[in-house]
Amino acid sequence: MKTEELSFAAVDLVTSAGGNVGSMSRCLNRLGVKFQTRGNYDLPSGDRPVILPGVGAFGTVMTSLHENKFAERLKAMLKGGTPFLGVCVGMQVLFDESEEAPGVNGLGLVSGKVVRYSATRVHKVPQIGWNKIVACREVTGDLKEGFVYFVNSYYACPREPDCTSYLAEYGGAFCAALQVGNLTAFQFHPEKSGDMGERLLKEWLSDVSK
């Protein structure tokens, strides 16, 4: 157990996008991952993998990311190849724009936009609860499918379908996770998704620890 825990690289946990930094840091503690919290005035070093958990509205999160030109620097860092994991709104900000905040630019690192689910009697919005994700292409590790915990009203539509690593269904198939180059992102909350969530995080951590 211990040797496995020690094999993970230390990561930078970015606190700039509000919300669930607490639950992510507790989860990293459970997994035995060393991490440092980083914010707008305390930039990630760039030589460690970066995790960006996000909760809240796209517009609010982008505004706080722009403070002290943090967004620009983060963007440059990620273009330079720093391994990145975005969670929830931390995934959505990778895109060009969101219906939640018309006119607000995202980081634009992944081409596409973030859209809202259409509410129906069956599919209430926000989506709150456990949904099944299924790998739709080769993914790191052997986790082909499983149940994870979602809390979201909006989801990302990548322009390139190949970006999508896991799909889920909520009134239609949507991109539950993406992986393109050094960028990985989950729309669900791996830190609240029981064993499946922890296994997905471990897959990412061991991948970026190589």
Binding site: G112, V122, H123, Q127, I128, G129, W130, N131, K132, V134, C136, E145, F147, F150, C157, P158, R159, P161, T164, L167, A168, E169, Y170, G171, A173, F174, C175
Partner: peptide, 18 residues
């Protein structure tokens, strides 16, 4: 348009929340 996955994919996805 964005997810032109085969239908079998949709089947294994099931229908939403547990």
């Amino acid at each position: 348009g964005e997810f032109s996955e085969p239908l079998t994919m949709a089947e294994s996805l099931g229908s939403g929340l547990c």
